[in-house]
Design a protein around this nucleic acid. Structure first.
Lengths: 195, 195, 195, 195
DNA sequence: CATGAATGAGTTTTCATTCAT
DNA sequence: CATGAATGAAAACTCATTCAT
């Protein structure tokens, strides 16, 4: 027998997850501070009162949704690092993976919205900072292990540059991976190469 | 003593300008979609009704404020290009000029907010696109004139990377010009240097 | 004693009904386009936010209130037709029933306001048209069944004339049923009587 | 030489007249209580401040505009009476003249709006009443002079019926003069004809 | 766990009117 | 006679949040 009847607890978890999903979509569509509880409930297909039943407040829901999405993304990049052989290959794969992000896609917008919201919310800033630092450290370790000089600073600039490309791509769609990759590769210098 | 009493028209222009200034501050402080007419009027030290007397709508005021600021910034960068001798010098000066932008300063936030808002407002997107393209073209021409290979693509990546650095700096204050400059310089390759 | 405590749904329906009643009064008192949400809430003895909780918009509430009242009125006229024997008797009863309508009473004004508002609102016009046509058809069928010639046109003119009388009565209170009836009776001609 | 330069007084009278004309149009288009000073100034092609320069208040302008239009209309009907020979001819001419009034034309709407507004404004009511009574008296005298029995009451009902037809025509465009005339003629009975 | 009615302050926008020039 | 900037209240509508059921 397959679980047709779910327990109350299961339904509860489902509703939570639907609200989190709706929050991710709506932050991207409308902007962080333009998302309302009514919109969330409607998008999630859920009674309006449930937002405050499952979450302490509207910002709490938005934060949980954004942080979760960022953590997943960093996890994916981590796996990408594990599979790449050379720095050039890694950069190609990373930019190819980002090809999906047109700059106006939900995930890109969600991330930039979250950066900006973090500017105004201490809790959110702490969480986002932690994730970004985590990514940078992982990237730095990988770069160092593959002969790249100044791995920490390179990782920091690379992460920033990639986010900048995604940001600009929202307005300049011709900023494809193919266009960017050869230029950005100049950032990666092996030990001894640096003048 | 000159002109203590101003004409009505002069006072009108002054009020407009105060509202535009208030808009620039508040977009950065609160976020594009969280700026309200009341906040604007209060910050500008002006009666609430004046917002809609001088501007057709709230978005119209925000757009005028943002676009004006972006145009000024591009103008400054243009002057910086005129004064720089070598590409390395240009990059240094540019990053030094950006040192002011902590990523959490009004101007940086205003720009990123505007990018995001442009994603959701056609008029704004057209205006912002025009300005960014203008900057990129100017930068490309300069780079080409100073022996940099692939000047268009380099200009595009450089502009994006710089905005990315400013964005990240909001959360990672250690991302200073001194840290970034040597790495980012790798982007600039002279003709023949490229492998 | 039964049900002193009502369910939330019951209280909701009650509030809706109070708002509809308030709308009917206020359209007559102030005029269709001068009815405000605050006035409605106050008259209904209800919190201001409830107007937009229960109705999609102010016009939506006004329309529902007006259409409901018109439908009731047509229903009453229908019953009056069923009980009348001869055309002359029917006209007398109808004018006597209208005696209540001084032309400045809530119902008369509500109807005329609704006619005018229908001129500027497509949805409202469709609804009002439907009701008026319904009344005319019913009246025409009755007139035809009682030997009146040209029942459709007679019904149309009779309905219009009666509304005209109500409209004029607002300014000329001496326009009583007793005054009007003998004259208006000239409209009703039996088959063969028409020259 | 034709007067290109007008005196200040002449320009003043012109502006007044343009505002009155704009008021007539806008009362019909938007409804009495939805006409604003800004709309009036724009429609008249005149600076906003001028409304209150030439008129004591907004209602004062609307009243002057409405009353003027009604007086002109009554004057026209008076001339129509002078030219008609028989009662049947008079009714035909009157209905033909009204053919222009689709019920949704500016003049029809202006009149009905004015009736309703008169309900809520004592000054306006006095003025409108005077005009309607004037028309009724004139009509009654004409009817009496042409052998119609009960001329006063007939005149009152006829005037009301005609306004009612115009009101209904807004929603039922098939209510043409041709349709209405033969029915309405039943109202007019010569002395001795009445049973 | 879930519902949806309720609240009162918030939003953008439009208003009639005044008045210095 | 004319202008248009200014004011402060009021307009319609949306909001996050609470809570009785």
């Amino acid at each position: 027998m397959v679980a047709v009847a779910r327990t109350a607890a299961e339904r509860g978890r489902e509703v939570r997850q639907q609200l989190v999903g709706a929050a991710r979509e709506l932050i991207a569509e409308r902007g962080w501070s333009a998302v309302s509880t009514r919109m969330l409930a409607e998008r999630a297909g859920v009674a309006p009162g449930l937002v405050h039943y499952h979450f302490a407040s509207l910002p709490a829901l938005l934060t949980e949704a954004a942080i979760g999405a960022m953590r997943s993304a960093v996890e994916e990049i981590g796996q990408l690092l594990d599979q790449a052989g050379t720095p050039a290959q890694m950069l190609d794969r990373m930019l190819t993976a980002l090809e999906v992000h047109t700059g106006r896609d939900p995930l890109s917008l969600l991330f930039t919205e979250t950066y900006l919201a973090a500017t105004r919310d201490d809790d959110l800033r702490a969480a986002v900072s932690g994730i970004v630092v985590d990514l940078r450290d992982r990237l730095a370790r990988w770069l160092g292990g593959h002969g790249i000089s100044e791995p920490e600073r390179t990782a920091a600039v690379l992460a920033a540059a990639i986010d900048g490309v995604v940001l600009h791509r929202a307005l300049q769609p011709d900023l494809t991976a193919r266009t960017v990759a050869p230029i950005l590769r100049g950032i990666l210098r092996t030990e001894g190469e640096r003048g």
